[in-house]
Amino acid sequence: MFSRKVTSLSELQGVAKELISEFQEERVFAFYGKMGAGKTTFIQSVCRALGSGDNVTSPTFALINEYNTADMESIFHFDFYRIKELEEAFDLGYEDYIYSGSYCLIEWPEMIDPLLPDTIVEVKIEVQEDESRIITAEKKH
């Protein structure tokens, strides 16, 4: 299991690179954590590690943002926090993105749990009493 303790924002880029390296064959990453745990901030670092120079922001209202790497490969960033019904994910065409072979970074995946593919990387961010974060990841089958 992948596990890192992060005590400052400056460490995120290195941890993001390690995460991508650890799960080189995977493309769907589901990010779990309480509100304010740092999911979007960590996803910004993951996008940088994947080679994107785009402005990475939370797609809270749009539900999905698309970023590009320097090689013009797509990275899809989902935020399902505001989703009320699974049909909204179908309306978005989530399957086209999830099964595209492109990187898919999903915030609030628990809102669409029945729709997630069988194989994903679950990334959990836990806030510690000292405000550090423990980031763990494992492949879910």
Rank of each mutant, 00 (worst) to 15 (best):
I83Q: 08
E88S: 10
N68A: 09
S100N: 04
E107S: 05
K84Q: 14
Y81P: 14
E87F: 00
D71S: 15
K84H: 11
P114Y: 04
Y99S: 09
E87A: 00
L92T: 02
F90V: 08
P114W: 05
T119C: 15
L92V: 01
D79R: 12
P109R: 03
D91V: 06
I98D: 02
A89Q: 02
R82Y: 09
F76I: 14
E107P: 04
L116I: 06
E88C: 11
I106M: 07
Y81W: 09
N68I: 04
M111F: 04
P117L: 05
L116A: 07
L116V: 06
E73H: 13
L86R: 04
A89P: 03
E87T: 00
C104F: 12
I106Q: 02
D96E: 12
D91F: 12
M72N: 15
E85I: 03
R82W: 08
F80P: 08
M111T: 10
L92A: 00
A70I: 15
I75T: 07
K84A: 12
S74L: 07
E73L: 14
D96K: 05
M111Y: 08
I112M: 06
P117T: 04
S100E: 03
E85L: 01
S74A: 15
D71A: 15
E95W: 00
D79S: 14
L86G: 12
L116C: 06
A70H: 10
D96T: 06
P114I: 05
T119A: 14
M72A: 15
L115H: 07
P114S: 06
E88T: 11
N68L: 13
T119L: 13
T119N: 15
P114F: 05
I106G: 09
I106S: 05
M72S: 15
F76P: 14
Y67L: 11
S102P: 03
Y94C: 14
N68K: 10
I83D: 10
L92W: 00
I83E: 09
L115K: 07
E95Y: 01
E95A: 08
W108E: 03
D79W: 13
I98H: 04
L116G: 07
F76E: 09
H77P: 15
A70P: 09
P117H: 03
M111A: 13
I83H: 10
A70S: 15
F80K: 02
A89C: 05
W108M: 01
C104R: 06
D71P: 10
T69R: 10
I75E: 05
D71G: 10
